[in-house]
Amino acid sequence: MGVEEEFMLVSPDGRPASVAPAVLQHAAAIEPEPSARMQDPPPGGVLEKEFKQEQIETSTHPCADLDTLAAGIREGRSRADASARHAGARVAAIATVPGVISSTVIRDRRSRLIGADFGHVAREQLTCGCHVHVEVADDDEGVVVLDHLRPWTPVLLALSSNSPFWQGSDSGYASYRSQVWNRWPTAGATPPFGDGATYRRVVADLVRSGTIVDDRMVYFDARLSPRYPTVEVRVADVCLEVEDTLLQAALVRALAQTAITEHAADGDRDALRDGRGAVRTEQLRVASWRAARSGLSGELLSPRTGLPVPAAMVVAELLAHVAPALAGFGDLERVEARLDVVLRQGTGADRQRAWYAEHDDLDAVVRRASERTLS
Rank of each mutant, 00 (worst) to 15 (best):
M1C: 09
G14A: 04
V23N: 05
A28T: 06
P32H: 07
E48V: 10
K49L: 07
K52C: 14
K52P: 02
E54I: 11
T58S: 14
A64C: 09
A64V: 11
A64S: 13
D67M: 02
R74W: 02
D81C: 11
V91C: 05
A92D: 00
A95G: 06
G99Q: 07
G99W: 01
S103F: 07
I106E: 14
A122T: 10
Q125H: 15
L126M: 15
G129S: 07
G129T: 01
H133C: 11
H133A: 11
G142R: 06
P151R: 03
L156W: 04
Y173K: 00
S175F: 09
P185W: 07
A187I: 13
D195A: 14
T198D: 09
L206W: 08
R208M: 04
T211H: 05
A222C: 12
R227M: 09
E232C: 06
E232K: 04
T245A: 13
Q248D: 11
L251A: 04
R253F: 10
A254L: 08
T261G: 10
L272R: 14
R273E: 15
R280H: 07
T281D: 13
Q283K: 00
V286Q: 01
A287Y: 00
S288Y: 00
G295I: 08
E299Y: 10
P310Q: 12
A316F: 03
L318E: 02
E333G: 01
L339S: 03
R344P: 03
Y356A: 13
D360M: 00
D360T: 05
R367K: 13
E371R: 14
R372F: 08
